[in-house]
């Protein structure tokens, strides 16, 4: 079982959309997938068409003192996800004080051995620590901005403090627009810095992603023939190889 923590190099780079896209791509490739939302904004559920007013989620249940595992949902096409749940400001479950709580809980789940777990990881907080402690690999979502080059070094320092080894650290460029000179230059720079750790194909900036969310549909249902959907498929395939420890190259 591989557990992939997906985090942004900074906030607002489309990390949640990447989790939803990847989960969709893997489930279409007939792989068992469980997507787990660790962000307090509780937005992953919207990518899977859950109602805005639905407040249920693992954290909400924990705070209410109930068994969290009942909060999972399954989409008609067999994809499972666990929403975070809506919480009042400042409320948090006690168990999160134990940094290995999530790792232990995930290990105790009766999941198929080839199941891929996707953790939508927030920028800070105890949930982040939980995710990084549980993850076998970390996927960092980079925006195509010059900033990204500067963000990598502190990020790697932080992650190694959490015990994530460098070779378990993978990167993907999101919202890439090749018609812009800066995007192309940033990709060139990043590829030089990260070599084979950067996904060979970036995820393009495609209006279809935003429109799908606006329609509360999964990307593949809304625009099966969009470039972004294709990119997520490619990314999923590349990750499948890297998570299995295969091919160092592209």
């Amino acid at each position: 079982m591989s557990i992939l923590s997906v985090t942004g190099a900074k906030g607002g780079v489309g990390c949640t959309a990447v989790v939803a896209g990847l989960a969709g791509a893997w489930s279409r490739q007939k792989k068992a997938v469980l997507a787990f939302d660790l962000c307090r904004q509780n937005l992953l559920r919207l990518h899977f068409g859950l109602d805005w007013h639905e407040r249920d989620g693992w954290h909400a249940r924990l705070v209410a003192g109930r068994d969290w595992s009942g909060a999972a949902w399954r989409t008609p096409d067999g994809l499972s996800f666990v929403p975070h749940g809506s919480l009042r400001d400042g409320a948090a479950a006690e168990v999160l004080n134990n940094p290995h709580w999530l790792a232990a809980e995930l290990a105790s789940l009766a999941l198929p051995s080839d199941c891929r777990l996707l953790l939508d990881t927030p920028q800070a907080g105890r949930e982040r620590a939980q995710a990084l402690a549980a993850a076998t690999h970390v996927l960092v979502v980079l925006p195509p901005e010059p900033l990204s080059c500067g963000l990598i070094e502190p990020l790697e320092a932080e992650l190694s403090a959490h015990g994530v080894a460098q070779e378990k650290l993978l990167y993907v460029l999101n919202r890439f627009d090749p018609t812009r000179q800066l995007d192309r230059d940033v990709e060139l720079l990043l590829r030089e810095m990260l070599a084979t750790r950067l996904a060979p194909l970036p995820v393009h900036r495609d209006e279809a992603v935003r429109e799908a969310l606006a329609m509360q549909q999964q990307l593949a249902d809304y625009a099966a023939h969009s470039q972004a959907c294709d990119d997520f498929n490619q990314l999923a395939t590349w990750l499948s190889i890297r998570l299995n420890g295969g091919a160092k190259g592209r």
Partner: peptide, 12 residues
């Protein structure tokens, strides 16, 4: 190749 349409959508 990727086709970038005027409405911001991209097609493979």
């Amino acid at each position: 190749l990727t086709l970038h349409l005027p409405d911001g959508k991209c097609l493979p």
